[in-house]
Amino acid sequence: MNGVMPPVAALTALSSGVLGGVFFGFSTLVMPALHRLPTPQAVTTMQQINAAAPGSLLMVPLTTSAAGSLAVAAWALTGPGVHGRAWLLVGAGAGLACFAVTAAYHVPRNDALATWNPTATHTGDLWATYLRGWTAMNHVRGALGVAAAVATTVGLARGWRG
Score class of each variant (00 low, 15 high):
residue 113 L to R: 14
residue 108 P to R: 08
residue 32 P to S: 12
residue 75 W to I: 00
residue 45 T to P: 01
residue 86 A to N: 06
residue 138 N to P: 08
residue 40 P to G: 10
residue 49 I to G: 03
residue 62 L to H: 02
residue 67 A to Y: 03
residue 97 A to F: 04
residue 109 R to F: 03
residue 69 S to E: 04
residue 56 S to N: 06
residue 62 L to D: 01
residue 133 G to L: 10
residue 91 G to K: 01
residue 75 W to R: 00
residue 79 G to R: 04
residue 38 P to R: 12
residue 124 G to W: 00
residue 76 A to S: 09
residue 31 M to A: 10
residue 120 A to I: 07
residue 56 S to K: 09
residue 118 P to V: 09
residue 137 M to C: 05
residue 101 V to I: 15
residue 64 T to G: 07
residue 94 A to M: 07
residue 67 A to R: 00
residue 43 V to K: 04
residue 141 R to S: 07
residue 49 I to E: 01
residue 79 G to N: 07
residue 132 R to L: 02
residue 125 D to R: 15
residue 131 L to V: 04
residue 95 G to M: 05
residue 113 L to A: 14
residue 43 V to S: 08
residue 57 L to C: 04
residue 53 A to F: 12
residue 33 A to N: 11
residue 87 W to P: 00
residue 116 W to Y: 06
residue 42 A to I: 09
residue 87 W to H: 04
residue 51 A to T: 12
residue 73 A to G: 12
residue 72 V to I: 05
residue 63 T to R: 07
residue 45 T to G: 12
residue 55 G to V: 07
residue 73 A to I: 06
residue 128 A to H: 13
residue 96 L to A: 03
residue 35 H to M: 03
residue 118 P to Q: 11
residue 38 P to S: 10
residue 132 R to N: 04
residue 137 M to W: 15
residue 70 L to S: 05
residue 120 A to T: 09
residue 86 A to F: 09
residue 47 Q to P: 08
residue 113 L to I: 09
residue 100 A to V: 14
residue 74 A to L: 07
residue 123 T to H: 10
residue 35 H to K: 13
residue 112 A to E: 15
residue 38 P to L: 05
residue 129 T to D: 14
residue 97 A to L: 15
residue 115 T to A: 14
residue 33 A to I: 04
residue 46 M to C: 05
residue 80 P to T: 12
residue 44 T to N: 11
residue 97 A to R: 09
residue 133 G to Q: 13
residue 68 G to F: 01
residue 69 S to I: 04
residue 105 Y to K: 03
residue 111 D to K: 14
residue 105 Y to C: 07
residue 115 T to F: 00
residue 31 M to L: 14
